[in-house]
Each structure stands twice: as C-alpha cells, then as structure tokens.
Simulated scan of single mutants.
Amino acid sequence: MSNWVEAKVKDIVWWTDTLFSLIVNADVEPFKAGQFTKLSMMMDDKRIARAYSYVNSPDSADLEFYLINVADGLLSQQLAKLTPGDTVLIERRASGFFTLDEVPASEQLFMLSTGTAIGPFLSILEQGDVWQQFKHITLVHGVRLNADLSYQDKIAQLQQQYAQLHYLPVVSREPAIIGLNGRITSGIADGSLFTHCQSAVTPQNAQFMICGNPDMVKDTSALLTERGYTRNRRREPGQITVEQYW
C-alpha cells in the first residue's frame, strides 16, 4: 500500500498576504493530536515534500494545516496556488512525539509557540483530553505583527468551552493590541509571562510545551533551565517538551 494518498482541497483560508490555512479531505490513518504529516507535489518530475502539523482534532473529517507562503519556498508557493477541488499528496501515516502522552500531568501547562507553530497546540486543545491532565492552560503565541494572530475565532470558542484556558499573544514588532509586547523569551526573563497566572509557577506545578523555530526553542529552553526546569525524557520526566518547527 502506498504511503502517499491523494487529498482533495476543500478550502484555503488566507489570514494575511503570507499566512494561510489549507483544508483537505483524505483517507489517512488515525493520528494523535500534536503529530505532523507530509504534504507533497510533483515539480519537474521530482517530488517535493515538507512536514506540517495537523491543526485539526484527530476526530475531525477535515484535515487542516497552517502555513506561511515563503518567498523562496519550493512547496509552500505551490500549495498557496491551490484552489478547492485541486489535489495534493499527503502522507498516510503521521509522525512525531509532541503529544500529550509524552507530557507528565501537572497543575499548569504552558503552550509556547511562534508563528505557524501554534498549529499542533490547537489540535491538542480541540481534542479535549488535555483538560484531564491540567487544571490551567496558557496558550502563548509569539508573532511579529498583530495581524499575524490567526485563529482568533477558534481560540475564543475554546475559551468559551474551557474556562481554564488563558490566551496570551506576544507581539514583537509593533504595540500589542492584546497581550504582551516583545518576545516570549523576554516575557519569561522579566516574569511578565507568568504574572497573569493564578498561582506561582514552579517546576513542581508547571509543564512547558515549546514549539517554534530552532532558535526560539533553544533560547526558551535555556531560560527555563536557568529557573530549575529540566528537559522531559521518558526515563527521566522533566517539565520541558519541545518540537522544532520550520
């Protein structure tokens, strides 16, 4: 059986002139919230494939991916041209360990993301199991501009559904309309990221899932390590679980 199956484009939602969501339907294997798959297209007799995390809950019939149209991106530029009814190839089986079953239960969970890396967190939140593991969840989204804060309706809907969900945007290149100014790292360094929480944040009561570009993951992990948090490993559970997201 081929690992690639055809996916039919249902919709494309443009958030800004470079950020868009691709919604497709395809017969894929069951996946866990937080996992990624690959999309591919043929170009000049060559298959170009890239990994993208699922944004949708695993029980949704629509498969959704949150992308940035990169100026020199071989695949993203082609995906950005798709219209409803077109087809794209999708890897049948999902991959990755950025999932809840890899994260120890705790009182608080911080989901720290930048850019399109908010995608896997939305999948985890929509799936719902997360509320059995944590009392309070803070979804932090670091972006350059206020306009880059996509999925506002979905986040508001999740907050209505789950009173324990806090949402904290962090905007770096202009004054924030809501949330904090600066970067996630500065919010950790000066403590402003934690001030809106209802209790003190310590290694004993908090877990961190970090998803973003490699520099963000490295810098954020280093700041948390300085504060006594450790990387979460299967043999030695800690408080920091990461995924690199390009």
Rank of each mutant, 00 (worst) to 15 (best):
I155F: 03
G115N: 06
I210R: 09
T138W: 12
T87M: 08
P104R: 10
W15I: 09
T18K: 13
D62H: 09
T114L: 05
T114R: 04
M1G: 12
Y151A: 11
T185P: 02
R144N: 12
H141E: 08
R93C: 03
D86V: 11
S106R: 01
G182L: 07
S199L: 10
G73D: 06
Y151T: 02
E243R: 11
V201M: 02
L112Q: 09
I188A: 02
E6I: 15
S221F: 11
Y162M: 05
D129E: 15
D215M: 05
I184C: 04
N205A: 11
E102P: 00
V70W: 04
V130S: 05
K135D: 15
K154H: 06
V242H: 01
Q244L: 07
T116M: 04
F134D: 10
K8V: 15
A51W: 07
A94V: 12
F97H: 14
L67Q: 07
V9C: 12
T87C: 13
K218W: 13
T114W: 04
A222I: 08
T16E: 08
G187S: 12
I124Y: 08
Y52R: 00
E174L: 11
I90S: 14
D153H: 11
S221M: 13
L89C: 03
Q35R: 06
P120H: 04
G179Y: 10
V55P: 00
P214K: 01
I12V: 15
E64P: 01
T241N: 10
G142T: 07
L193A: 08
F194M: 09
Q35T: 03
S172V: 14
E64G: 02
F97R: 14
T241P: 05
S2G: 00
G142E: 02
H166I: 05
L75G: 07
S150N: 09
F121D: 01
D190A: 02
Q133S: 14
T87L: 03
Y54H: 15
I184K: 04
A33S: 13
